[in-house]
Design a protein around this nucleic acid. Sequence first.
DNA 1: GCAACTTCTGGGAGCGCTCCCAGAGATAGA
DNA 2: TCTATCTCTGGGAGCGCTCCCAGAAGTTGC
Lengths: 336, 336
Amino acid sequence: MKLEDIAKKAKVSRSTASRVINNDRYVSADARQRVLKVIEQEQFEPNPAARTLVTRRSNIIGVAIPQTANVFFGDNSYYPMLLQGIAEAVNKSDHAMLLWLAESHEVRDVFAKRVVRHRQPDGLILTSVVDRDPLFEYMVKHNRSFVMVETPPAYADRVSYVTIDNVGAAAEATRHLIQIGRKRIAHITGQLTIQDGIDRLKGFRQTVAEAGLLYEELIKPGMFAAEFGYRLMQELIPLRPDAVFCGGDTAAIGAIRAIHEAGLRVPDDIAVVGFDDLDVATKITPALTTIRHRVMDIGSTAARLLIDLLDGRLEHPHHFVMPTELVIRGSTGGQG
Amino acid sequence: MKLEDIAKKAKVSRSTASRVINNDRYVSADARQRVLKVIEQEQFEPNPAARTLVTRRSNIIGVAIPQTANVFFGDNSYYPMLLQGIAEAVNKSDHAMLLWLAESHEVRDVFAKRVVRHRQPDGLILTSVVDRDPLFEYMVKHNRSFVMVETPPAYADRVSYVTIDNVGAAAEATRHLIQIGRKRIAHITGQLTIQDGIDRLKGFRQTVAEAGLLYEELIKPGMFAAEFGYRLMQELIPLRPDAVFCGGDTAAIGAIRAIHEAGLRVPDDIAVVGFDDLDVATKITPALTTIRHRVMDIGSTAARLLIDLLDGRLEHPHHFVMPTELVIRGSTGGQG
DNA sequence: GCAACTTCTGGGAGCGCTCCCAGAGATAGA
DNA sequence: TCTATCTCTGGGAGCGCTCCCAGAAGTTGC
């Protein structure tokens, strides 16, 4: 069943039927009624390919997650939550979501090529962009529509993105540790190829420096995964820190394990602060003090932003900075 | 840049250029070379909408996850792993994946309508189908191509699916508990609206019955979420079970928490077996004895199956039963 | 009364591909 | 040599929509 047939059944032209579907105002109430009735009884849905061919819009949003499996998996619910947020915004505006996942250990270059080759989506949401990311570079160079989650590693003034105030949030986390009287505060960073990691380090460093508590040897460049938290904490313990701020919750969980295995207590001997407030943060003992940001909101904001840009409702580039909140729990002496 | 322009630059007709792209054998080596060169230097990609319009194939696979957020999220990595598996198969055959996520607390009916309305995908992968699932019923009734992950709740002989031997695996888990000498074995089931949960219960019941150890009061209908494991274990403890088999790992984790809070020991007082071997299974203390199935393999098998059906390489319906494996850990007295 | 709008309608062209068909040219078999 | 077969090519139609345009019909203002 195609538009032509609907039109015939409703005794109007193909054009009028099309007008009804696209909510054009120049249709008589009578004709509209008849067309809608036929559409309803035939359960008609216009062919999206035909539509896309002429409108040059597929109403599909691409989401590229170039991280390897071990990050996407596991106790890290960041990406699922982001996807859920994107889904909600995408549904509301009657779009669909095309998902690109990197294969395990896939090179960024190969991944980028794969995503770029498929031209179905009108625009892309990019996550976990690293410095000199081929996909990112391609999108910028070819002037294709996209929105980033997190701060871009380059061209920040030319790119639309949704981020949180990483510098401010890291500073707040660090100030909290200072306020509870810690003097030797360590930092296990997130991935320093990602802007988030860099900014959190910056907020940390500024704050300890202002308090006269900056010790470079207590700063360990890491990754977001738990293994790094564990291993780097083991390296830190001989340096006798009394607190550690981790770039991500999973790393913090690894760190806590290392502290416990060394026979030390959290928070009494070493206070721990994470970042992200993942689900696991409340599931460990003691519960983790951390920075909460609503990942779902970031996802839906990014999707809405992209669609608004595509529809011309918003000017490119456009930035959103989402709020964060310090959640104090047992790992720094709060309750829980 | 469109096919016409490529043809012109390569001094061939549109038809010949199209033949090169679609790997038709009736093209002279010379012409093929010229076309490929132009395609390469212009970075040409054929317009997918135009292609879809005539071939009636979009090379897009839809994946529908009708579960509400709290299942998709959290420490349950089932769906992310499934998606990763699907992604790998989909990439290999040059397809793309369209993802439908239910909104939080969205009614199945609304979700189904949304998925059905969008006609882009050539076929669908359905997960977590419940009894009388509107999406499932629609797909069957309208004879649309789809593949199920898990055993279908109905029409099993007319539907293609990928599953594991739930009955057999549950029996193996139960036999293990019997072998280590347990006499009062409880079962906290998975969702009994999903076939997986039903089959696991069946395997459990058969096995305890054969051993003369069936106590109906020790069977608690539950859900896969941790809260259920926790709450139902609290109800079970006064009945003095010495072992519990849970329909899923997350429920098992909840159960362990309840056991510990009651001042009992795992596995000494109550041995615990889970199902799924999620990431968390090794992260808790004691580590969880559980049934392992490679969720990623299930995902990629389902995607491959769907594509093979669409391409006519496989007859519909087609079934795959994937292997499972009992992994013995600390929660039943193994090491770890 | 007529001009000038506004509302409503249908036809035609065209989006960028694939695929069918007819035909040219080369090769082989008798 | 002639026919049969295979290889290669280009033109045309058509996939199912949207959108432009021309024109009919109805409404308003003088």
